[in-house]
Design a protein around this nucleic acid. Structure first.
Length: 473
RNA sequence: GGCGGCGUAGCCAAGUGGAAAGGCAAGGGACUGCAAAUCCCUGAUUCAGCGGUUCGAAUCCGCUCGCCGCCUCCA
């Protein structure tokens, strides 16, 4: 498949470096607050990529996503609330994982907490100092940007351009304003670990290098995150990893576009954000996923409730088909006496393969989920046409369409069928009411018939009269 | 100032050299006792504007206009 590689600035053919194993790392959250709705985009998009690779390419994806549980933001939060850094980290790590579950994001293979790998970070910093890529000043350690000749290769920046007029805070301790912090000496009351340079904590940029290497080795297949991380975060990761190992750090760098509100980026500091859990409460996880996947992942996406409502309607079109075919055909396979499909039935079944091919070619082209959804929508239209004309056992072919929708929807986290409700007394009672109502309708006693329909509707049961009979969902 | 990106129907949005996907909204029709759903039909002679390259351009090149992101923490 082809993926747009930020490092090459173009789409490139992707396959794992080794066999069928994909080593993939996605930058995770700093757990100082609930996620906002914009934070969900990489989680959903790269989850879809991972699941597509697993389901359609037959690759095994080792998916690593860090949890940053020590950071300036956590320390600030602790000072504001009086809770300890540990308490805050625990609280928001828990809400983070429950959010993933709710969104049907497959759990990462590994979700390392930064604080559990401090030792490895210290070792990396020592290696860098030993090779001349870092230096210590008063308990802080800085990376010597001038020592790494490829600095800027990901973001397309040159160090001589960066240093002029840079907004980087000048520090007398740094040799060069571009140098970034690898180890920060602890101030009183801050979380701290012992190190050769005294008590302190690692810098954020060091964390991802160590955590990825721990589980994925020295060369990753894919490193992904929001495009706001390209500089400086990912650039600084490359500088550390490649200086330490002399090897390419990641073969592919994937970056999603940001969520916009009006004409500007959604950001906590701008106060224009909505919390993810609030939006999920209002619209539900599947609608949120559809909303994101209906726009190509590299482009900016405008957030609006209108956009979510539209996604919800597009989604409903698919679910109507699924629910109604389920309601009509249920678990039946027609039994052994069922004749095979007619010519029309066979033509419909054959057409399904074309939608599958279209879906695959869209997904293979830099994860074009927008085109993939269009393929599914066209499949739904085709199935609806077939549904309005097919007769008898031919209608069983609709179950093949449902199976295909489920298969294609799996990587997207969409259109998964609900577990079949156990057949019970309720089922029988509803059938009884439907039969009674049919008799009333035959006698043109519509007022009573409508009353049955209305009262069932109040119980959450919708009746739909079809040429094949009444179905309920 | 440097780097990157965007501008496609009323709205959202794919497509990036060879007949303008899909969704939402709107109008007309079919089906229906009604309802809900579904189906059919109606939409861009055109892709911000202007030039150029090409047999052929929304797609490539140049210029202009409008907008956004990064260059400090950010997904």
């Amino acid at each position: 498949m082809k993926l747009y590689n930020t490092l090459a600035r173009k789409k490139e053919a992707f396959r794992p470096q080794e066999g069928k194993t994909v080593r993939m790392y996605v930058c995770g959250p700093t757990v100082y607050d609930h996620l906002h709705i914009g934070n969900l985009r990489p989680l959903i998009v790269f989850d879809a990529l991972r699941k597509y690779m697993e389901a359609f390419k037959g690759w095994e994806v080792i998916y690593v996503q860090n949890v940053t549980d020590v950071d300036d933001k956590l320390i600030e939060r602790s000072a504001e609330t009086g809770d300890t850094v540990e308490e805050i980290a625990k609280r928001y790590t828990d809400t983070y994982f429950s959010l993933l579950k709710q969104l049907d994001v497959k759990e990462p293979t590994h979700s390392p907490r930064a604080t559990e790998y401090i030792e490895g970070m210290i070792e990396l910093i020592q290696t860098l100092i030993g090779k001349g890529y870092a230096y210590e000043r008063d308990g802080d350690v800085y990376y010597r940007v001038s020592a790494f000749k490829d600095y800027g290769k990901l973001s397309g920046r040159r160090t001589e351009e960066l240093k002029v007029g840079a907004r980087i805070a000048a520090s007398e301790k740094k040799e060069n304003p571009l140098d970034f912090t690898l180890w920060k000496a602890a101030k009183p009351g801050e979380p701290k670990w012992e190190s050769p340079w005294g008590e302190g904590r690692p810098g954020w940029h060091t964390e991802c290098v160590v955590l990825s290497r721990e589980f994925l080795g020295e060369m990753l297949d894919i490193h992904a995150g929001g495009n706001d991380l390209i500089f400086p975060h990912h650039e600084n990761e490359i500088a550390q990893a490649e200086a330490a190992t002399g090897k390419l750090f990641s073969r592919f760098w994937l970056h999603n576009g940001l969520l916009m509100v009006g004409e500007e980026e959604m950001h906590k500091s701008l106060g224009n954000f909505a919390y993810a859990y609030e939006v999920l409460q209002k619209f539900g996880p599947e609608t949120v996923r559809y909303f994101y996947l209906a726009r190509h992942y590299r482009k900016p996406l405008d957030y609006s409730e209108g956009g979510l409502e539209e996604a919800n309607k597009a989604l409903a079109r698919v679910h109507t088909l699924i629910d109604e075919v389920e309601a009509e055909l249920g678990e039946t396979d027609g039994g052994p006496e069922t004749p095979g499909p007619s010519a029309a039935g066979r033509a419909f079944i054959d057409s399904l393969g074309r939608f599958r091919e279209r879906y695959i070619s869209e997904m293979e082209d830099d994860l074009n989920t927008v085109g993939a959804l269009a393929a599914i929508q066209e499949l739904v239209a085709e199935a609806n046409r077939f549904r309005s004309t097919a007769e008898g056992s031919d209608r069983l072919a609709l179950k093949k369409a449902l199976n295909l929708i489920g298969e294609l929807g799996w990587p997207l986290g969409l259109f998964q069928r609900k577990k079949p409700a156990p057949k019970g007394l309720q089922d029988e009672l509803i059938k009884l009411l439907i039969e009674l109502r049919a008799e009333l309708r035959a006698k043109k006693e519509f007022a009573l018939a409508d009353s049955i329909r209305d009262r069932l509707a109040k119980l959450g049961i919708t009746l739909k009269d079809r040429p094949q009979g009444t179905i309920w969902t």
